[in-house]
Amino acid sequence: MLTVPYFVPSFAGDASAAVLEVMESGWVTTGPRAAAFEEEFAAYLGAAHVVAVSTCSAAIELSLRALALPPGSAVLTPSLTFCSAVGAIINARLRPVLIDIDEHTLVPTPDTVAAAVRRAGKPAAMVVTHMAGYPVDAKELAAAAGLPRERVVEDVAHGPGGLLRGAPIGSDSYAACFSFYATKNLPIGEGGAVATYDAELAARLRAMRLHGMTKDAWKRYLPGGSWRYDVAELGMKANFTDLQAVIGSAQLRALPGMQARRHELAARYDAALAGLPGLRLPQRPANGHSWHLYQVRLRDRTTVDVALGEAGIGTSVHFIPVHQLTAYAKALGPQECASVPATDRVAEELLSLPLYPALSDEKQDLVISALAEALDGRPC
């Protein structure tokens, strides 16, 4: 057993009772509680619409498919992301084109976007990733790519909790895609959502998440409802259930406290790790980081990671760049895989330390001590 696990989920105290209530209600799939959660999450973000779906991966794929681009159209994306974000582009029958990142912030910049456009030509769309919770200005990147904002899909799996110019990420997005996976800032276990200002997109996504059906089961089986429905546009099975929704509602009420703790822990890491030899701290924006991850850079990551493991400290790496994975390297081709040198350099050094609301000061101090010991005497 690890002394300090990499992650331990936290659940609001009233989540269990809410789940039992749904189970006893006789309706556990997509229904009124899922709709209520969508409204609550939209209010939290300040977004016009939220459509809850099965995963963030599904949210990205559905948002791309809703753009109705010609098959094979080029979609810009960073490679320092989870593989499913690029998989969503391929599954939507589109073509990923890689964007390199800034070595300090770990996210694309207008310059790296412009460089990708010069290399590969003007894209049809772009997926923007708020890596680790670092807020990205999607409008700036869209302008650098020569795209309207309605061609930008934002991967906000590492939020919510992030801010851009003082407003929650997703409050003014065409398609901001969130994750509620067990390790995320708003952990439900599974689930995702798309926040949008566009009512037409929201309506299409609501149908597309249920095979494209014009009426979901709740509407069909209400008193006076009809079993008749149509499928006007092909969709997929990607709905969000009432069981997930009531956990999400409870977690949403607890989110401010959980976010406050993440910020406290990140500040403690900053203060304790500053100046350690061979280690670089994560870059802080002026404001708005959601602190989903605390990623340090290590010149000798393998040796340090082994030492931490021997000390009972759980760690992870976010991420193996997508173009380094066998199936994606084959799909992208050698020229595309060679186009992101900064990503390749940074990826060899990144290590994610434990960071979650349930992490105590005492446990975090064990992480800090073990890391300092592993780095003792190493050259800067």
Rank of each mutant, 00 (worst) to 15 (best):
P9A: 10
F11E: 13
A15G: 06
S16F: 10
A18Q: 06
M23F: 03
A35E: 11
A43M: 05
A43C: 06
G46V: 15
A52D: 01
V53M: 00
V53R: 01
S54Q: 14
A66K: 06
A68E: 13
P71L: 11
S73D: 03
A74S: 11
T77S: 15
T77K: 07
P78W: 04
S84P: 05
I89M: 06
P96Q: 09
V97R: 15
I99D: 04
I99S: 10
T105F: 07
V107I: 09
V113G: 06
A115W: 04
R119N: 12
A120F: 15
V127T: 11
V128H: 02
T129N: 06
G133S: 09
D137L: 09
L141N: 08
R149K: 10
E154Q: 12
V156D: 11
A157N: 10
G166D: 05
S171P: 09
Y174V: 09
C177S: 02
S179Y: 01
S179A: 13
Y181K: 07
L186T: 02
E190A: 15
A193D: 00
V194H: 01
A203W: 02
R204N: 05
A207T: 11
K215L: 08
D216L: 00
W218P: 00
R220F: 03
G224R: 11
R228T: 14
A232F: 05
E233L: 01
E233W: 00
G235L: 05
K237Q: 11
K237D: 14
L252H: 07
P256T: 07
G257K: 13
R262V: 08
H263Q: 14
E264R: 12
H289P: 13
L293N: 12
L298R: 13
L298S: 07
L298K: 13
T302H: 15
T303D: 05
D305M: 15
G309E: 02
I313V: 12
I313Y: 00
G314H: 01
Y328W: 15
A329K: 10
A329I: 05
A331Q: 12
G333P: 06
P334I: 10
C337D: 05
S339Y: 01
T343S: 06
A347L: 10
E349Y: 07
L353A: 07
P354E: 00
L355N: 13
P357H: 03
D361I: 11
E362C: 01
D365I: 09
S369D: 14
A370S: 04
R378N: 10
P379F: 07
C380K: 14
